[in-house]
Design a protein around this nucleic acid. Structure first.
Length: 555
RNA sequence: UGGGGUAUCGCCAAGUGGUAAGGCAGCGGGUUUUGAUCUCGCCAUUCGUUGGUUCGAAUCCAGCUACCCCAGCCA
């Protein structure tokens, strides 16, 4: 697909253009800073495309930095999956992978600097007491009794914190700012807390860990980040971001700008909820094709280019938003329509017996792999007396809006002959099992010679060479547009989000590579699942084809 | 009157004082051996609301209203 050519315009690019024009910066340096405590999802894709996209367009740099200041929630598996997902999306960070934990020594020294300046103190108040003294949204807080401890004593206490002489929760290092500030995050925020936790990068070297607000701004400055982009909920935190940099000895002055996070209909994008879906087994794992994770979308068959295009189309603003799933699906279809080869598969088969076709005959037909791209070549299709067609594609009677096989009428078998339904068998329940047809042997690759019109075309699979396959059909994971807003989002899970049908596919599909996209004509785009075996094919339906036909359309 | 933000078509989103881009969805027509694709056309006299400034306002000013975020030793 031609990814949208027009260069995006948004408020962040305008800020950068201005900074470059005014000489505030000579180049652009961004960063994508995930905490390795979960898998990346489509919301992260927005941030990734923004940060790496900016670096690309302005010929600048973009770092990948793990914001790993809370070892209790993080692990190395998440680190690895995040690197893999960023690369799958088509981006490569500049230089080595960065970790906030790499700056722990410097961070510690800056904390000491603040203490020495009388701008930080060790507070031994109990946690609930700290909360109490912070005040509320409408009432100011009160100063901690430890707020005026001498610099020397604070230095000593902090050294003991670091040395492991205090148990977890016994005390914390706090910035001395303003307990009456209208910004809650400025009421003497905690800078360091005690955690006797093993860290995936620094092992057991530390028992005190810096908080996000103290770490992020310094990490940005240390890496020479020029524009530090984050989501809206950090707007208040910007005051603290600037306060820290204003009060320590550091040259660089990165600036933080906030944009709105992505919300997608019929799914959830909070890490806590996604983790719950996985741990409670509502889905098969982080890469379940119904998940909005990068890994899930990849397994589902969404091309990386489609995800990138989606991020481009939704734009970047400060407005709260809820994007429709149709926007994402349109990007996926655009990409797949252009690049996926075509094939035929029958999801709910009934048999067609062509009575006037010679009993032992079998022929090899040729079909284009793509309707409008000849360079994709052709494939062979076997054809014989018995073929499978879709149950929905035959009716005993129907109005003229129905363009498929009807008893006594003709229809074209895609890439093959025109057939006419003569009679049919049913089982005890009345379900059609076999349709007996006749075929016009003069209609291969051409219209009937007598000029009669055959408007319908249906897909089929030769019964003699058909290969059975499990086909996984996915629907939205939740029944409501905004499950995150429900009282209990688990209750809103769609019980029918996955259905597996036993279908038949044309023989050539046995050799399809895992993950390679294919369009099953008239039914949708699919890809072979990683669980697929050579003797047990499994396909995932990536997305359905657009379908403007509706049953209720008057005849 | 805690503070910080945001309000432009069903959903995204341009627009930055000169008279409302685009995409998705939807609706009609054409082409078509995929009810797909492709293609053509339609889809905001109006920008949360009320006033004001101006020759001229979505854009400037004032007042309302609605929604989101902040009281983790999470990020």
């Amino acid at each position: 697909m031609a990814e949208t050519e027009i260069r995006p315009t948004n408020f962040i690019r305008q800020i950068i253009d201005k900074d470059l024009a005014n000489g505030v910066h000579a180049h652009v340096h961004t960063r994508f800073p995930p905490e390795p405590n979960g898998y990346l999802h489509i919301g992260h894709a927005k941030s990734i495309c923004l940060n790496f996209g900016l670096a690309q367009d302005y010929q600048g740099q973009c770092n990948l930095r793990f914001d790993d200041t809370n070892p209790e929630k993080e692990n190395i598996d998440y680190v690895n999956s995040i690197m893999q997902d960023v690369q799958w999306l088509g981006f490569q960070w500049d230089g080595e992978v960065c970790y906030s934990s790499k700056y722990f020594d410097q961070l510690h020294d800056y904390a000491v600097e603040l203490i020495q300046k009388g701008l930080a103190y060790v507070d031994f108040s109990a946690q609930d007491k700290v909360r109490e003294m912070r005040g509320t949204l409408t009432t100011p807080g009160v100063n901690s009794p430890y707020r005026d401890t001498s610099v020397e004593e604070n230095l000593s206490h902090f050294a003991k914190m670091r040395a492991g002489e205090y148990p977890e929760g016994h005390c914390s290092l706090r910035a001395k700012i303003d307990m009456a500030s209208p910004f809650m995050c400025m009421r003497d925020p905690v800078l360091y807390r005690i955690k006797f936790a093993h860290h995936h990068q620094t092992a057991d070297k530390w028992c005190i860990y810096p908080m996000y607000d103290f770490t992020h701004c310094i990490s940005d400055a240390l890496e020479g980040i020029t524009h530090s982009l984050c989501t809206l909920e950090f707007q208040d935190n910007r005051r603290l971001y600037d306060w820290v940099l204003d009060n320590i000895t550091i040259e660089a002055r990165p600036r933080q700008y906030e944009f709105s996070r992505l919300n997608l209909e019929y799914t959830v994008l909070s890490k806590r909820k996604l983790i719950q879906l996985v741990t409670e087994h509502h889905v098969s794992g982080w890469d379940d094709p119904r998940m909005p994770t990068i890994a899930g979308m990849r397994r589902r068959g969404y091309p990386a280019a489609a995800v990138r295009e989606f991020c481009k189309r939704i734009g970047v603003t400060k407005m709260d938003n809820m994007v429709e799933m149709s926007m994402l699906e349109a990007c996926v279809r655009d990409e797949l329509n252009e690049n996926a080869n075509r094939a035929m598969a029958v999801l709910d088969p009934i048999k067609v017996v062509i009575e006037n076709y010679p009993q032992d005959k079998s022929e090899t037909l040729h079909a284009p792999n793509h309707p409008s791209d000849e360079s994709k070549g052709t494939r062979e299709l076997s054809f014989s007396k018995e073929v499978f067609i879709e149950r929905d594609d035959f009716r005993e009677q129907a109005n003229k809006k129905y363009k498929r096989l009807v008893l006594g009428k003709e229809v074209r078998l895609r890439n093959a002959y025109v057939i006419k339904a003569e009679r049919f068998d049913t089982d005890e329940q009345g379900n059609v099992t076999t349709v007996y047809c006749s075929y016009d042997d003069q209609t291969l690759g051409k219209d009937p010679a007598d000029g009669r019109k055959v408007k319908g075309v249906i897909h089929w699979v030769d019964a003699a060479t058909a290969v059975e396959a499990d086909i996984r059909l996915y629907d939205r994971l939740f029944r409501v547009p905004n499950p995150a807003g429900a009282d209990d989002f688990i209750e809103a899970i769609n019980p029918d989000s996955l259905s597996i049908v036993r279908g038949v596919v044309e023989a050539g599909l046995r050799d399809l590579a895992t993950g390679e996209a294919v369009q099953f004509e008239r039914t949708g785009y699919f890809c072979k699942d990683v669980d697929s075996q050579s003797d047990k094919l499994i396909f995932n339906r990536t997305v359905e084809l657009r379908d403007s036909w509706s049953e209720s359309t008057p005849a």
